[in-house]
Computed example of a mutant assay.
Amino acid sequence: MMTDVLVAHSSEVEKADFYKKTYLHVALSILAFIGVETILLKTVPPEIIAMMFGQKYTWLLIIGVFWLASVLASKWSLSQSKSTQYLGLGFYILLEAVIFMPLLYIAVNMAGGAHVIFQAAMLTIAMFAGLSAVAFTSKRDFSFLRNVIIIGGFLSIGLIIAGAIFGFNLGLWFSVGMVILASASILYETSKLQNVYTTGQYVGASLQLFASIMLLFWYILRILMSRRS
């Protein structure tokens, strides 16, 4: 069972244990994502992957299902049951791997694709580390970013849907804006580690951080790929 003690009200030892478990789960989630993605790219036929980004309404359906399923996975990850928490985290990792398939398939098959993916991964890790350090050392409460993230999220979803329906390219500046939004999300989620979660909610906390990292990685990779095209 989870404790009801807020991390902010716990002892230094309990705080350190919570942070260690949270970031360990983030790291394991990334490794699991790499493993699942590798298997998918090797086993899923290219024709099926092409259908995901070749048909605009198919892609919209996938995005809709992903959004609904991610809400469910997030809810599971904060359950009182540890097995349900891990089910939510594992389900979300699988969802991310499926959503990333088309983008990574294109990246892998473009000239210098492996280098671009590696570069995007290193930039993502560096930005995540820097933003986490700011959130922990500044002692600021970044909860004010919540409304910015919600509004930005709805605007971005609206633009993505409009782009898919009407066939226009959102372009480089949209990707830059999404990198900023993902960075704000990392600051907000890191701030929540200190102020919102209880010491038993490290699985749910790791899922939220993992989601922000993957959003950041997606758009950094898109920016780097656009420079190669």
Rank of each mutant, 00 (worst) to 15 (best):
P46N: 12
K82P: 00
G130C: 12
S81Q: 10
I63G: 01
A126S: 15
K15D: 02
M52N: 04
F210P: 01
Y86Q: 04
I93N: 00
G54W: 09
T43Q: 08
M127W: 09
L87H: 01
F66N: 01
G153E: 13
F168E: 05
T43P: 02
T84F: 02
Y57S: 07
G171V: 07
T22W: 02
G113W: 04
G204D: 03
M178E: 14
F128E: 02
E189Y: 12
I161W: 10
F33I: 07
S79F: 03
I220A: 08
M127V: 15
V7G: 00
I149R: 10
F166C: 06
S191Y: 05
I160T: 15
F168K: 05
A162W: 13
K21Y: 02
I63M: 15
L94C: 10
V176Y: 07
S229I: 09
F154W: 15
I62E: 11
L6W: 02
M110Q: 14
G152V: 14
A205F: 03
I34G: 05
V203I: 13
V13G: 00
W218E: 10
L95H: 00
K75E: 11
S10L: 03
S175A: 14
S77G: 09
T58N: 11
L131S: 06
I34T: 07
S70F: 07
L41C: 04
L31E: 04
Q55D: 12
T22E: 02
L89R: 00
D17L: 06
G112F: 05
S10N: 05
I157R: 03
Y105F: 15
S29C: 04
A27I: 06
L104Q: 02
L24S: 06
V26N: 00
L159C: 14
S11T: 12
S81N: 11
L60W: 01
G112L: 10
Q119K: 14
K82Q: 08
K15L: 02
T43Y: 10
L172A: 07
W76E: 07
L155R: 06
L60V: 15
W173A: 06
E189D: 15
T190M: 09
I39F: 13
N147F: 13
S229D: 11
I106C: 03
G113Y: 07
K20N: 05
R227E: 09
L31C: 08
A73D: 01
A126N: 11
L104D: 00
I220C: 11
T199A: 04
A182P: 05
G88W: 00
V176G: 09
F174L: 10
A135D: 04
A97Q: 01
Y86E: 04
Q55M: 08
G152N: 12
G112V: 06
I160H: 08
I63S: 10
T137Q: 13
F53C: 02
V44C: 08
S191G: 15
L41Q: 11
Y23I: 03
I149W: 11
S226T: 12
S226L: 11
A120Y: 09
V36S: 05
S185C: 10
I186A: 04
A162T: 12
G90D: 00
A107V: 06
A129G: 12
S10I: 04
S77P: 08
I157W: 13
T198C: 08
L68A: 15
S143T: 15
H9I: 00
W59L: 15
A107K: 01
Q194W: 06
S29I: 04
D4R: 05
L209M: 08
M52T: 03
V71N: 12
R227D: 07
Y188L: 13
A27F: 08
I30Y: 01
M178Y: 07
F128G: 08
